[in-house]
Design a protein around this nucleic acid. Structure first.
Length: 234
DNA sequence: AAATATCGCAACCGCCGCCCT
DNA sequence: GAGGGCGGCGGTTGCGATATT
């Protein structure tokens, strides 16, 4: 870079190139006193001949105390592959799932380990896996929608014949009844009886281990809260 | 042992979006 | 609403270290 920018020299008043220990110390002391942010005022307050951008970058990528040093672990690599299949080159987004790792670090790692030669197989596998899961999720959602629609139709039908209706289960309870039945129990829908009495209850007709909410391989890698964005292109 | 290639990393640039005036 | 400043992000560059020929 020296040839291009003049490493370590002043360009338009700013120093460029590698940071010295003295500069690091100044920056760290400043952040300790004033916190992160307001990067452009640092040079004025500390005398550092560095641009705000340069200060921020140095802090975020190198000086931050919560940074994890050392090599990317196989587990982290797996996460990077999976998340890259999901997000593409959104390094900062990927970095949020890897505490202590910076976007720059992940970007560099990707470029050296995956972009150039090997790996395409791993990456393609991860991408395929992600797309498959996305498809399955969509199907599930469609099925649920259909079920709900069906139940709603039934409910309307019941309401239409309200005169003769003995029981008037609410839609949430019908859904719950269905879930309970899937678990192997018999569920008696709560009914509004003529005369204002209620009947409610469920009885065991079997049962087993409840693993409906167990984390899948995919969900185990990161927070599933953000699955709402699955519609995005990758 | 010397020359060359590759890797790993730090740091820069340009662009974009947000916020304030 | 327009314009400017600032911070954040992704892409790129180049140096030093290490591996290979």
């Amino acid at each position: 870079m020296d040839g291009h920018y003049g490493w370590g020299v002043l360009a338009a008043g700013w120093r460029k190139g590698p940071w010295t220990p003295q500069e690091d110390k100044l920056l760290m002391e400043h952040v300790k006193l004033h916190g992160e942010g307001r990067w452009n005022s640092i040079s004025r307050l500390t005398g550092l001949k560095r641009s705000g951008k340069s200060c921020r970058l140095r802090w975020v990528n190198y000086l931050r105390p919560d940074l994890k040093r050392g090599k990317i672990t196989p587990h982290e690599e797996a996460i990077i592959i999976e998340l890259h299949a999901k997000w593409g080159n959104r390094w900062s987004t990927i970095a949020k799932s890897l505490p202590g790792r910076t976007d720059n670090e992940i970007k560099n790692y990707w470029r050296t380990h995956f972009k150039r030669q090997k790996s395409t197989k791993n990456v393609e596998e991860a991408r395929a896996r992600f797309l498959r899961q996305q498809r399955e999720l969509k199907q599930q959602q469609q099925q649920q929608q259909q079920q709900q629609q069906h139940l709603q139709e039934q409910l309307l039908l019941l309401e239409r014949n309200a005169k003769d209706v003995v029981c008037m289960p609410r839609i949430e309870e019908m859904l719950w009844a269905q879930e309970v039945q899937e678990m192997g129990y018999t569920y008696n829908l709560p009914c509004v009886l003529q005369g204002g009495e209620f009947s409610v209850g469920w009885s065991a007709a079997g049962g087993g281990e409840d693993d409906r909410w167990s984390e899948g391989e995919w969900g185990g890698l990161w927070n599933m809260d953000d699955l709402g964005v699955l519609g995005m292109g990758i």
